[in-house]
Amino acid sequence: INASIYDEIQQEMKRAKVSQALFAKVAATKSQGWLCELLRWKEDPSPENRTLWENLSMIRRFLSLPQPERDAIY
Rank of each mutant, 00 (worst) to 15 (best):
residue 55 N to D: 13
residue 16 A to S: 11
residue 54 E to W: 11
residue 20 Q to R: 08
residue 68 P to N: 07
residue 33 G to R: 14
residue 67 Q to M: 12
residue 52 L to C: 04
residue 59 I to G: 01
residue 11 Q to N: 06
residue 65 L to S: 09
residue 3 A to S: 15
residue 66 P to H: 04
residue 39 L to A: 01
residue 7 D to F: 09
residue 11 Q to E: 07
residue 39 L to Q: 09
residue 45 P to V: 13
residue 16 A to M: 04
residue 71 D to A: 02
residue 26 V to M: 06
residue 26 V to R: 02
residue 47 P to M: 14
residue 72 A to W: 06
residue 51 T to S: 11
residue 40 R to Y: 10
residue 64 S to K: 08
residue 46 S to L: 10
residue 22 L to T: 03
residue 47 P to A: 07
residue 28 A to S: 10
residue 52 L to A: 11
residue 14 K to I: 13
residue 57 S to V: 13
residue 61 R to Y: 09
residue 20 Q to T: 13
residue 25 K to F: 08
residue 52 L to W: 07
residue 14 K to G: 11
residue 47 P to V: 12
residue 39 L to Y: 00
residue 32 Q to N: 05
residue 20 Q to P: 10
residue 10 Q to G: 09
residue 60 R to Y: 09
residue 72 A to K: 10
residue 21 A to L: 05
residue 38 L to C: 03
residue 34 W to P: 01
residue 10 Q to S: 11
residue 61 R to M: 04
residue 17 K to D: 14
residue 36 C to Q: 10
residue 44 D to A: 14
residue 64 S to W: 08
residue 33 G to T: 14
residue 61 R to I: 06
residue 54 E to G: 13
residue 40 R to V: 09
residue 20 Q to S: 05
residue 54 E to F: 12
residue 63 L to N: 03
residue 6 Y to L: 01
residue 54 E to H: 11
residue 56 L to A: 01
residue 7 D to H: 08
residue 12 E to P: 01
residue 17 K to A: 11
residue 23 F to S: 02
residue 64 S to P: 03
residue 17 K to S: 12
residue 64 S to I: 05
residue 34 W to V: 07
residue 68 P to Y: 10
residue 33 G to V: 11
residue 22 L to D: 15
residue 42 K to S: 07
residue 41 W to K: 15
residue 55 N to R: 10
residue 7 D to G: 14
residue 16 A to D: 00
residue 68 P to T: 09
residue 7 D to K: 11
residue 19 S to L: 00
residue 36 C to K: 08
residue 33 G to K: 07
residue 51 T to Q: 10
residue 55 N to F: 09
residue 47 P to D: 11
residue 9 I to T: 00
residue 69 E to L: 08
residue 17 K to F: 07
residue 60 R to V: 06
residue 57 S to T: 10
residue 15 R to I: 01
residue 41 W to H: 15
residue 25 K to H: 15
residue 32 Q to T: 13
residue 19 S to Q: 03
residue 25 K to W: 08
residue 34 W to C: 01
residue 10 Q to L: 09
residue 9 I to M: 12
residue 5 I to D: 06
residue 57 S to D: 08
residue 24 A to P: 03
residue 71 D to Y: 03
residue 70 R to L: 02
residue 32 Q to R: 15
residue 51 T to G: 12
residue 34 W to M: 13
residue 4 S to Q: 08
residue 56 L to H: 04
residue 70 R to K: 04
residue 15 R to F: 02
residue 51 T to P: 11
residue 73 I to N: 08
residue 65 L to F: 07
residue 3 A to K: 09
residue 28 A to D: 02
residue 71 D to C: 07
residue 70 R to I: 00
residue 74 Y to T: 03
residue 69 E to V: 07
residue 20 Q to G: 14
residue 25 K to E: 11
residue 32 Q to V: 07
residue 24 A to D: 04
residue 3 A to H: 11
residue 57 S to C: 15
residue 31 S to F: 05
residue 48 E to V: 12
residue 62 F to Q: 03
residue 69 E to W: 06
residue 6 Y to G: 01
residue 36 C to N: 15
residue 35 L to V: 03
residue 44 D to N: 10
residue 59 I to M: 05
residue 69 E to C: 04
residue 32 Q to Y: 06
residue 32 Q to L: 03
residue 11 Q to Y: 08
residue 26 V to T: 06
residue 45 P to A: 05
residue 36 C to F: 10
residue 3 A to V: 09
residue 72 A to F: 10
residue 72 A to N: 15
residue 10 Q to V: 12
residue 22 L to S: 09
residue 45 P to S: 04
residue 23 F to L: 00
residue 36 C to P: 05
residue 68 P to G: 14
residue 32 Q to G: 14
residue 64 S to A: 12
residue 42 K to F: 02
residue 19 S to G: 12
residue 14 K to R: 15
residue 28 A to P: 02
residue 50 R to S: 10
residue 65 L to V: 07
residue 7 D to I: 09
residue 25 K to S: 04
residue 7 D to S: 13
residue 24 A to Y: 00
residue 16 A to K: 08
residue 55 N to Q: 14
residue 56 L to R: 02
residue 34 W to Q: 03
residue 4 S to P: 06
residue 54 E to V: 07
residue 8 E to L: 06
residue 48 E to W: 10
residue 14 K to F: 05
residue 4 S to D: 14
residue 54 E to P: 03
residue 16 A to Y: 00
residue 15 R to G: 01
residue 17 K to T: 12
residue 13 M to H: 01
residue 10 Q to A: 14
residue 5 I to E: 00
residue 69 E to A: 07
residue 56 L to T: 00
residue 40 R to L: 09
residue 36 C to I: 13
residue 54 E to T: 07
residue 54 E to N: 12
residue 49 N to G: 05
residue 32 Q to H: 05
residue 62 F to K: 00
residue 45 P to T: 04
residue 24 A to L: 01
residue 55 N to S: 13
residue 28 A to I: 07
residue 68 P to A: 15
residue 61 R to L: 10
residue 29 T to P: 07
residue 65 L to C: 03
residue 18 V to F: 03
residue 67 Q to G: 10
residue 4 S to F: 14
residue 59 I to Q: 02
residue 73 I to G: 13
residue 47 P to E: 14
residue 4 S to T: 14
residue 50 R to D: 10
residue 46 S to I: 14
residue 48 E to S: 10
residue 12 E to G: 00
residue 60 R to K: 11
residue 51 T to F: 05
residue 38 L to H: 05
residue 72 A to R: 15
residue 45 P to I: 06
residue 8 E to M: 09
residue 28 A to V: 14
residue 39 L to E: 05
residue 25 K to D: 15
residue 4 S to G: 13
residue 27 A to S: 11
residue 68 P to R: 12
residue 54 E to I: 11
residue 11 Q to H: 12
residue 35 L to I: 10
residue 54 E to C: 05
residue 62 F to W: 06
residue 69 E to N: 08
residue 25 K to T: 09
residue 65 L to W: 00
residue 28 A to R: 00
residue 31 S to V: 01
residue 65 L to T: 09
residue 50 R to T: 09
residue 42 K to C: 06
residue 53 W to P: 05
residue 53 W to H: 07
residue 14 K to H: 10
residue 8 E to R: 06
residue 16 A to F: 09
residue 59 I to W: 04
residue 4 S to E: 13
residue 40 R to M: 10
residue 6 Y to V: 04
residue 11 Q to F: 12
residue 41 W to R: 12
residue 62 F to V: 02
residue 60 R to L: 01
residue 17 K to V: 05
residue 6 Y to E: 02
residue 32 Q to P: 11
residue 17 K to W: 04
residue 17 K to I: 00
residue 51 T to W: 09
residue 5 I to S: 04
residue 7 D to M: 11
residue 3 A to W: 13
residue 56 L to M: 06
residue 29 T to D: 09
residue 34 W to D: 09
residue 72 A to H: 10
residue 74 Y to A: 02
residue 13 M to C: 05
residue 41 W to C: 15
residue 8 E to W: 06
residue 15 R to H: 08
residue 56 L to F: 05
residue 47 P to K: 02
residue 23 F to W: 01
residue 54 E to D: 14
residue 22 L to G: 05
residue 63 L to V: 01
residue 3 A to G: 14
residue 31 S to L: 03
